[in-house]
Design a protein around this nucleic acid. Structure first.
Lengths: 179, 179
DNA sequence: CATATCATGTAAGAGGTTACATGATTAC
DNA sequence: GTAATCATGTAACCTCTTACATGATATG
């Protein structure tokens, strides 16, 4: 099957499904496991919900990229990657394209002239706290990081990003006061 | 109408529609104008497509938050915000909630052990270039920035973000080589 | 035996993307 | 007159989110 490298199903893999295939390289896993693994390993820059995981697993199974195993205890149903899963290799080596950021706080800020200054300050403060906590979490992770260099690199991105955001938060009052 | 501050349509405003209302505060505008304005003013942290703009304008009109004006030359159809548009005030003062980042390059990197190193390097280099160009663009904008402090603050975010990303790109080879 | 957690899934709808269709006007 | 661009919109589809439904197993 797929001897010449041809793939029956030409529909390109979406990133969410592809990530699941990526994790399945580490061994067969159930949807439940994949949800946990995705949130843990890529959740900070690629959100995945439980609902999506089950849908994409069904699609991967239908398209022959992953195969359902025997249902075990507690309805646990493992999936494993098939040889067709080479579609993953093509996905991971493609040009990944630009990131999309959707940052509602920046929207509120862009229309900040319509918000009472005190209210805006409280919103900003609350959001700063969230980022401070995220940074602390990443630093904690980094301390006892055991994974490979690739995991370290993406974690480092998170740390870099949160530090930059916090710097910006700290400059914000100054940027806004002359108004 | 809406004398007591009540709003007929309880469905909460989505951020994309709300942004359009935000821009309409600066005067009546057509869909075409709004597309340009949105891409220009909030496009770097809130992507909006032309298709969405026309859809949301139709919805805003249906719900009485914006009103179609007379069609002018070239089918130009301006919209203006109505008194019901006070819904915008509630939206802009809400807690904006966390940002979502979807960064495909980080996904490729997370599964970097499945990519030939040389290929990965080229992907990384190409993406670094995009960010360098974006930073240059923002810096250019900042030089001749005429808007208000809020616009300056969001632009400053862009600059801070791109600088951090570039720093990270520059550390990346070092992070990956011990493997 | 009651409660928490594990585990799978469906339903419905909102939001976003891409591609296409159509026609008016301006600039060369 | 023809090409570019202005301007509006529709269609189809994909993706994502939220909420709900269902039942098994472990823990106290």
């Amino acid at each position: 099957m797929s001897r010449g490298g041809y793939v029956k199903n030409e529909k390109p893999l979406n990133s969410t499904a592809a990530s699941l295939l990526g994790f399945l390289h580490e061994g067969p896993m159930s949807g439940w496991d994949l949800v946990a693994m995705a949130q843990n390993r890529i959740g900070s820059y690629w959100s995945i919900t439980q609902s999506q995981v089950y849908r994409e697993l069904a699609a991967l199974n239908r398209d022959g990229l992953a195969e359902r195993g025997e249902t075990g205890p507690r309805d646990r149903t493992p999936y494993r990657i098939t040889e067709e899963g080479e579609a993953f290799a093509a996905w991971v080596a493609r040009d990944p394209g630009p990131e999309t950021i959707r940052f509602p706080l920046l929207l509120s800020l862009a229309f900040g002239n319509h918000v009472e200054p005190e209210r805006l300050s409280r919103i900003i403060a609350a959001n700063r706290t969230i980022h401070a906590e995220r940074l602390a979490g990443y630093l904690e992770e980094a301390k006892c990081h055991t994974g490979n260099a690739y995991g370290a690199a993406t974690l480092d991105f998170g740390i870099t990003y949160e530090r930059a955001v916090l710097d910006w938060f700290d400059r914000l009052p100054g940027l806004l006061e002359r108004d």
